[in-house]
Design a protein around this nucleic acid. Structure first.
Lengths: 360, 360
DNA sequence: AACGTTCGGGCGAACGTTCGCATGCATATA
DNA sequence: TATATGCATGCGAACGTTCGCCCGAACGTT
C-alpha cells in the first residue's frame, strides 16, 4: 500500500483568510468577462485601447497576480525545473556550488521559471524514483543535471522517459541530449604549456581513477601536450586516486622519494585538494614549492590564492555555464526540439600564481 | 502595464501525449466513484477491506500518482518552501551551504515538501518583491531564511504579511518568529577557555564590524570569558573589518609590529578567512604559529585541517540545524501556531589542532 | 413494528485558470 | 440590398483534485 498521502490527510488546514484577487474580481472591476481578462493578460487577443486600459487599471488597483497553481493545472506546465546534486564529502567544500546555483536561479527567473531542489539519494534506484515522482506528479517541466558520468543512470532514465533535461557535463558520446561542459583537456593543456614554457620537461600528474569521465577528459590535456612536445610520458609519474588531500600527499611523497634522476620537477593535479596535499608533502621534504617543484591544479577554489605560495590553478567559467544551460533546457521544453547547438564546450581560464614560479 | 505573462503567451505548447492515470482511471478500474478513490488514498473514510484492496490494486497496476498541481489548487497549499540566500563574495566559499541545503532538502522531503529556490537580489526592495510574488501566486507555503540581521527587511515583511517563516539566525529580540541559531558566544568562549588553559592571557581578536548581529554575538564570548578570568580587555587588540583574508593579514601585521611588551600571544578570529590571513602575516614576520602565536577561528571550513599548521576552529552543527529548522517551519504552517519552543540555540563544537599548539 | 445509528459509498461543486469556438456588430465587397 | 470579412468580446468546458453533504442498507434498540 502506498503512502504518498500519509502526511496530507492529517493536516489541519489553516484558514488565514488571505484573499487574493482572482480573474473574476478583475473582470467585474473592469466590466468584462473574466476570460477576456485572461486573454489580455496573456496578450492573446486584440481589444480596444480603452478596454485594455480598464483591465490593466483593475489589475493594478486590485493588485492582481495570476495564481500559479491554477495556471499550471490548466496549461499542464509547472514552470519549474528540478535540480539535485551529489553532496560533497565532509572533508571538502564544493567550490562552485554557490555560484552555479545563483547563476541558474537568476537565468531561470528571467524566463519565469524557478528551481525545485531535492535531496540526492546515494542509492541510484531510490534516486531515480525521486525523478519519477516529480515527473509523474507534474511538479517539474525538466531537469538540470550535474556531475554526469559514463552511462549515467539519470540520463538514461530521462531519455527513456523522453523527459527534458540539460546537463553540466558530458556522458557517453552516443547519448544525444543538451549539455554544456568545461573543456577540461584544454584547461590542463594550458597548464602543461605554461610549465613547458618555464622549462619543465619532467612533469608528473595526480589524477583520478580511470573510470572517471571528467578525469579522463582532463588527462587528455596532459598526454596530448606531452606528445605534441615530443616528450614520452613516464608511467610511474601518473598517480591515481580519489581527489582528496591524503591521496595527493602520499603520492607526492612517493615521487619526491625517488632517486633524484627519476624525480619530476613539476606536477599537475586534477583538483585543488590533491595539490594542497602535494604542497604539504613538498614542505615536509623541504622541497621549495615553485622553484624546486612547480605545482598546478584545477578548480581555483577561492582560498588557494591565499596558500603559501599561492596556487596556480585553472578556473571554470561557472557563471557562464549557468547562464547558458538554462536557455538550453528551456528552449528544449518550450519548443520540443533539441536546442541548437545541442552541446557546448567552454574554455576555462589559467590563473598563474607563485606555485609555478620560475625554475631555478 | 505589467508583464508577468510575457513569456507565457508565446510558448508553443508541446504535446508529448504523456498520459498519466488520473483518479477517474483508477475509479473505473476499481469500480467505484473517483471521489471514493480520493478518500481512500487520503485515508479519510472507511471502506470495506475488499474495496480498499481493489482500489490500491488499481493504483498499483495503473501506476497512479496524484497530480500535485490539482491537489495544490484544490487544497490551497503548495507543499513547497521558498529559500534564497546571499551569495558568497567571489574570493570566498560558503563553507556550510552544501551541507545545509542537503539537510533541509532531506528533512523537507521526509514530510512531503520540496524547496523552491530563487535568486538573492541585492536590492532589498526588489528582493522583497520576489517574496511577495511567491506568496501572491501561491507557489510556496512558507520561507526559510538565513543570514538574518538586525531589523532584517525580510523578517519584517513576512511578519507584516503574517506569512510563515523560520530562520537560521536571530534578529532583534523583540521580533517573535521561529528561529534556530548557533550559540556563537558559547563557541568563542570555548576557544577562549582553551587558550586560557594553555596559559595565554594576552589574546587579541579579529572581529567584524559593530553592526553585525552574528559578530556581536560571537564577541560576547570573547569579552565575557576575559571578564570571568579577571583579564582586562586591551582596546587596541580588537581589530574589526570584513571577514576576509586581507583584513586578517593587515590587522595581524599591525599587532605583530607592536613592541614586544604590548604584543598578544594568541588571537581568535571570527571566521576562517581572517585566521588564514593572520597565519600568513605570522609567517611573513617569522613568528611560529602555535608556539609563539596561537591562532584559532570559527567555521571549520573543511580545508583548514590541511593548513600548515592545521587550524583550530569552531564547527557549527549545520546538519542538525537543517534537520530541526524544517519541522519548526512545517509545524507552524500546518497548525498555524508558533512551534514550541519558538527559538532554539545549539552549541557548536571546538576542534583543536596545531595552530593552538602548546606555548613555549 | 417503528426508530435511531453506523457504515459504505456516491454526487455535485469548487479551486483559478486557459482553450476553442461562437456571437454580435461594424465595415467593406459584390 | 444582400453577402462576405474582420474585429472585439463572451461563453461553456476542461485541467485533476478535495470538500461537504446526501443516501441507502444493515444493524441494533425500544
Amino acid at each position: 500500500m502506498r503512502t504518498f498521502a500519509r502526511t496530507f490527510a492529517s493536516i489541519i488546514v489553516r484558514n488565514m483568510a488571505r484573499q487574493h484577487a482572482t480573474l473574476k474580481d478583475v473582470a467585474i472591476s473592469a466590466g468584462v468577462s473574466y476570460q477576456t481578462v485572461s486573454k489580455v493578460i496573456n496578450h492573446q487577443v486584440q481589444v480596444t485601447k480603452e478596454t485594455e486600459q480598464r483591465i490593466w487599471q483593475a489589475v493594478e488597483t486590485l493588485n492582481y497576480r495570476p495564481n500559479h497553481t491554477a495556471r499550471a493545472l490548466r496549461s499542464q506546465r509547472s514552470f519549474t525545473l528540478g535540480y539535485s546534486w551529489p553532496p560533497s564529502p565532509k572533508d571538502q567544500t564544493n567550490p562552485i556550488l554557490d555560484q552555479f546555483l545563483q547563476s541558474i536561479f537568476e537565468a531561470a527567473e528571467e524566463r519565469g521559471y524557478y528551481l525545485l531542489c531535492f535531496p540526492y539519494n546515494s542509492d541510484p534506484k531510490k534516486h531515480l524514483e525521486a525523478y519519477g515522482e516529480l515527473i509523474d506528479t507534474g511538479r517539474v517541466d525538466g531537469f538540470i543535471l550535474s556531475s554526469v558520468e559514463y552511462q549515467d543512470p539519470r540520463v538514461l532514465f530521462l531519455l527513456e522517459h523522453k523527459f527534458p533535461l540539460a546537463a553540466f557535463g558530458r556522458s557517453d558520446p552516443e547519448l544525444v541530449f543538451p549539455w554544456i561542459d568545461v573543456d577540461g583537456a584544454a584547461g590542463i593543456a594550458m597548464v602543461m604549456e605554461h610549465l613547458l614554457e618555464l622549462g619543465h620537461e619532467r612533469i608528473a600528474a595526480l589524477a583520478w581513477p580511470e573510470n572517471s569521465r571528467v578525469g579522463n577528459n582532463r588527462m587528455e590535456g596532459y598526454f596530448n601536450t606531452l606528445m605534441a612536445a615530443g616528450i614520452k610520458p613516464v608511467s610511474g609519474w601518473v598517480k591515481r586516486g580519489e581527489g582528496k588531500f591524503s591521496v595527493g600527499y602520499d603520492a607526492t611523497l612517493q615521487l619526491l622519494d625517488l632517486p633524484k634522476a627519476k624525480r619530476p620537477t613539476a606536477m599537475i593535479a586534477l583538483n585543488d585538494a590533491l595539490a594542497i596535499g602535494a604542497m604539504q608533502a613538498a614542505r615536509d621534504r623541504k622541497v621549495a614549492i615553485g622553484s624546486q617543484l612547480a605545482i598546478a591544479s584545477f578548480d581555483d577554489t577561492p582560498m588557494v590564492q591565499y596558500l603559501d605560495p599561492p596556487l596556480t590553478s585553472v578556473r571554470q567559467p561557472v557563471w557562464e555555464v549557468g547562464q547558458r544551460i538554462i536557455p538550453m533546457l528551456l528552449d528544449y521544453i518550450e519548443t520540443g526540439r533539441l536546442p541548437e547547438p545541442t552541446s557546448v564546450l567552454v574554455r576555462p581560464q589559467l590563473i598563474v600564481r607563485g606555485s609555478t614560479g620560475r625554475q631555478i
